[in-house]
């Protein structure tokens, strides 16, 4: 019975963590956050020992792979442990004998991937229902997880576009021209920063996708434009346009301050 209790606890934890991360649009679950932060820290540490930023390119991919392993792995182990709690939970279809431990592990993985039951059958009506529930769970986890990852890549692309947009705007020598360029594109810039801010809240993992070059890195470009904004507002340059932009930047700083720095 101990296996059943462990299985129930594990399944509740992974289901909460998964659905909070993927569906709530309010950030990531506790374990997902811990995994993401831990891997990102490893990459940042390796970056301090490296000559260039190439290693950081793999941070986002590593986090996504680790999260898939955590979500699907925990679901698989949870199902496997629940099968272990009953000796006759899984039967060999041809010999009608109870399946050994390794075959229960195979059966649970086979069911979760919705491939079928792999020459084994559930041992009772209760386990038949449980098997159907787990098969649906595997299907839901895989499809919803993939949809989430597509949204994340779209948010990462937006992050890079924003960085590039700012870098392009500031690609003039004169400070006055830079301010004028920001004023001319104030609305678009504000919308892009706001969208990135919302992406940050919905998909915190986007913070750990790093760019190798400075032009497409958001942090240095945002720091540059913020300094420009602060100086321009001190000199009372077109505050009607710059104040909303400054406010949008404040919202972003508020989001990042609470979560990442």
């Amino acid at each position: 019975e101990i296996y059943l209790y462990i299985a129930i606890c594990l399944l509740i934890i992974v289901a909460y963590d998964f659905f909070f991360t993927v569906i709530s649009i309010n950030g990531a679950g506790l374990i997902t956050s811990m995994i993401s932060k831990g891997i990102a820290r490893c990459f940042l540490w390796m970056n301090t020992k490296a000559v260039n930023r190439t290693i950081l390119r793999f941070s986002g991919v590593a986090i996504i792979l680790a999260l898939i392993c955590w979500w699907l792995g925990a679901l698989w182990i949870g199902f496997f442990l629940s099968l272990l709690s009953d000796h006759t939970a899984v039967m060999d279809a041809s010999s009608a004998t109870a399946a050994p431990t390794i075959d229960k592990f195979y059966f649970s993985g086979y069911m979760l991937s919705t491939l079928g039951n792999g020459d084994f059958v559930p041992g009772s009506s209760g386990w038949k229902v449980m098997t159907a529930i787990f098969s649906f769970s595997g299907f839901i986890f895989i499809t919803t997880g993939m949809t989430y990852l597509i949204s994340v890549s779209s948010a990462v692309l937006h992050k890079r576009s924003l960085a590039l947009f700012i870098a392009n705007l500031l690609y003039v020598k004169d400070e006055g021209d830079k301010v004028q360029a920001v004023i001319r594109n104030g609305d678009q810039l504000r919308n892009m920063i706001n969208k990135h801010n919302q992406n940050h809240l919905a998909y915190p993992i986007v913070h750990y996708f790093y760019s190798t070059d400075e032009t497409t890195s958001l942090a240095p470009n945002l720091a540059r434009i913020d300094q420009l904004l602060v100086d321009a507002l001190k000199n009372n340059v077109d505050s009607n346009t710059l104040h909303p932009l400054y406010h949008s930047m404040n919202s972003y700083l508020h989001t990042v301050n609470g979560t990442f720095v």
């Binding site: 950081l56 913070h207 790093y210 942090a219 240095p220 945002l222 913020d226 700083l253």
Partner: peptide
Amino acid sequence: DIRKALFKDILKSDGWDS
């Protein structure tokens, strides 16, 4: 000031401190 310190932290969290 606080704003500068915040951006310093953001740059650090983006791997730009080394």
